[in-house]
């Protein structure tokens, strides 16, 4: 029974966590390059060098002493996001929609006192949300105004597009839609919906919500499939270019679509999750293995890699 299921999964080309770690992450991602993606300040710097747009940084809080001065640095900005530079899984992120004389209004409409807010930033700096508990920096950056295309299938928050890129080739993609359960966060393990995207067309296909296949958004009730992702080719190119940018061979690229600025690189993940397979109802390993034996010329530019991927992954 167990072996039968394992065989069926292997035939379907499903990638397991052990194989992902041993054959892809350890094999393609040198440890020395991890800081480039683990620290969002570094990622942003690198991205700008490679002409990949990212959300604007207003300010980086480096030390506890800077917290008092935060108000002054913010100037007239009333809308911004505060996040830990080395955070993971969306923890520690606060989206501020407005400021009053003594409080910040978060995205969910909650008023956070100035004191509480300073405490939160202090927590970020002391490393509560950082990988490995190291001391951290807090990033204050521009709030993203999501493209209206996802408005019908989003409960608060900002949906993002995850593309798994293997040696510069985009192999699989999904869009993550926040729900009430996920508290407006676009993280699958918190209850966001993941909708698979056809690589060649940019159309959403099936979706997964807490390991269950769904067709409609649980909060808005609107269908999640058949949505055309705007700027699709541009996004695939951005994703593909992160290979040259970081040198990491197996990477999860998170992109958001801003109403004004278009697709932006939000963050990179050197250990991308496997739930994307469920969102696409398709195995990753099958696609990763297709890249083996492709002519070397394909890898020369991001354009050729994207073109190859769109052709190669047309059928499932």
């Amino acid at each position: 029974m167990i072996f039968q299921i394992a065989r069926q999964l292997r035939e379907a080309g499903v990638l397991g966590i052990n194989k992902r770690n041993a054959d892809f992450i350890m094999h393609c991602n040198p440890r020395s390059l991890f800081p480039l993606v683990d620290d969002k300040v570094l990622t942003k710097k690198l991205a700008s060098e490679h002409q990949i747009p990212t959300p604007l940084i207003y300010h980086v809080i480096e030390s506890q002493g800077d917290i008092a001065d935060l108000e002054g640095k913010l100037g007239s900005q009333n809308q911004f996001a505060v996040k830990p530079a080395r955070g993971s899984g969306g923890s520690g992120i606060v989206l501020v929609m407005d400021r009053t004389s003594n409080a910040f209004i978060t995205q969910s409409g909650e008023a956070v006192s100035r004191e509480d807010f300073a405490h939160h930033v202090s927590d970020i700096l002391s490393g509560i949300y950082s990988l490995g508990g190291l001391e951290d920096r807090a990033i204050v950056e521009a709030l993203i105004h999501p493209d209206p295309i996802f408005a019908a299938v989003t409960y608060q928050g900002v949906p993002d597009v995850r593309v798994v890129v293997y040696r510069g080739i985009p192999v699989m993609a999904m869009v993550r839609l926040p729900t009430k359960a996920s508290d407006g966060k676009a993280n699958l393990h918190r209850g966001a919906i993941g909708a698979g995207i056809e690589l060649h067309s940019g159309l959403t296909i099936t979706a997964v919500h807490q390991s269950q296949v769904v067709t409609h958004h649980p909060d808005t009730g609107k269908p999640v499939s058949g949505i055309q992702i705007p700027y699709w080719d541009g996004m695939l190119l951005m994703a593909a270019r992160t290979w040259e940018m970081t040198g990491l061979g197996y990477i999860g690229v998170d992109l958001v679509i801003d109403r004004e600025r278009g697709p932006l690189l939000l963050e990179l993940n050197a250990r991308p999750g496997l739930a994307i397979q469920m969102a696409n109802r398709s195995g990753l390993l099958k696609r990763l293995e297709r890249t083996v034996g492709t002519p070397a010329t394909i890898f020369s530019t991001a354009e050729s890699r994207v073109a190859w991927a769109k052709e190669a992954f047309k059928k499932a």
């Binding site: 299921i5 394992a6 499903v14 966590i17 052990n18 041993a22 109802r281 195995g283």
Partner: peptide, 14 residues
């Protein structure tokens, strides 16, 4: 590098 037992359940729909 094979599947974990829990993954057989997690990915069963695939």
């Amino acid at each position: 590098t094979g599947y974990r037992l829990s993954e057989l359940f997690r990915f069963r729909t695939l």
